[in-house]
Measured scan of single mutants.
Amino acid sequence: LYHVLGLDKNATSDDIKKSYRKLALKYHPDKNPDNPEAADKFKEINNAHAILTDATKRNIYD
């Protein structure tokens, strides 16, 4: 999941948040209406963010 956000395992919560915002804006379906690959990437980014920002889920993942 870290690679989805372009981060390593030592990433801080701020790093995760910044990377998520940058990538979410880039791949958001509203910005890429005719690109199904961007929509899939956006879903991956959201999933990675949801797990890595939840301390319990992140510990389980790590």
Rank of each mutant, 00 (worst) to 15 (best):
K57Q: 11
P33H: 00
A50V: 09
Y2S: 03
A11M: 00
D15L: 05
I51Y: 06
S13I: 14
E37Y: 08
K9S: 11
T53I: 07
D54F: 00
L1C: 07
K22A: 14
K18P: 02
I45N: 05
D15G: 04
Y20P: 11
E44S: 07
L7S: 06
R58P: 11
N46A: 15
Y27L: 06
T53W: 02
N59W: 05
N35F: 06
K26P: 08
K22M: 15
K43A: 15
H28R: 09
A11C: 09
I60W: 13
D54Q: 01
K26F: 05
S13D: 14
D30F: 00
K31H: 09
A24V: 14
L23C: 02
L23N: 12
K18F: 14
L25R: 12
G6Y: 01
N35Y: 01
T12R: 02
P29C: 04
D8A: 08
E37G: 12
T53M: 10
N35I: 08
N35R: 07
A38V: 09
K43L: 11
K43P: 00
I51Q: 13
K41I: 09
T53V: 09
N32F: 08
S19I: 01
I16K: 04
D54N: 14
K18D: 12
K57V: 01
Y27G: 07
K41R: 11
D15C: 08
K22R: 13
K26A: 12
K31D: 11
D14G: 05
A24W: 15
L25I: 11
L1T: 02
A11T: 02
K26L: 12
D14C: 02
K22Y: 08
Y2L: 01
H49S: 07
I45A: 09
N10Y: 01
N10F: 05
K22E: 15
K43Q: 15
A50R: 13
T53E: 07
K9R: 11
D8H: 04
I45P: 04
E37P: 04
D8M: 06
V4N: 10
L52S: 03
R58S: 11
A55C: 05
A48Q: 00
D54K: 12
A11V: 01
L25F: 12
L23M: 09
I60M: 14
K41S: 08
P29G: 05
A55W: 05
E44F: 01
N35H: 09
T12W: 00
A11N: 10
N46I: 09
G6F: 00
A55Q: 13
N59P: 14
N35M: 04
N59L: 10
I51R: 06
H3K: 10
T12N: 04
Y61E: 15
K22H: 15
N46P: 01
L25D: 15
K26D: 11
K18G: 09
P29A: 12
D15S: 05
P29D: 11
N59G: 14
D54C: 03
D62Y: 00
K22W: 06
D62P: 06
T53N: 14
H49Y: 08
T53C: 10
S19V: 09
D40L: 15
D34H: 05
S13C: 09
A39K: 14
D8T: 06
V4L: 07
Y2E: 11
K43C: 15
K26H: 08
D34L: 01
A48P: 05
A50H: 08
R21G: 14
A55E: 12
H3T: 13
Y27P: 02
A38I: 12
Y61D: 15
Y61L: 11
D15W: 07
N32L: 01
N10P: 00
N59E: 14
I16V: 08
H28Y: 05
H28W: 03
A24I: 14
Y20Q: 13
Y2A: 03
L23G: 07
K9G: 09
D54W: 00
P33M: 03
H49G: 12
N59Y: 03
N35L: 09
A38Y: 10
A39M: 10
I51T: 12
L25K: 10
K41M: 06
N10D: 06
D40P: 08
D8N: 07
D30K: 14
I45K: 08
Y20D: 12
A24G: 05
N32I: 01
R58I: 03
I60D: 15
A48N: 00
D15I: 06
L1K: 07
I51D: 14
L23S: 04
L25A: 13
A48D: 10
H28G: 12
H28E: 15
D14T: 06
I51N: 07
D8F: 03
I16D: 02
D34P: 02
T53G: 14
T53L: 12
I16E: 07
L5K: 04
A39G: 12
E37S: 13
K18I: 13
N35P: 04
L7T: 01
L1E: 10
E37F: 13
A39N: 13
Y27A: 06
S19C: 11
F42C: 08
L52M: 05
K18Y: 06
L7Y: 00
A48C: 00
D30P: 05
R58H: 07
T12I: 05
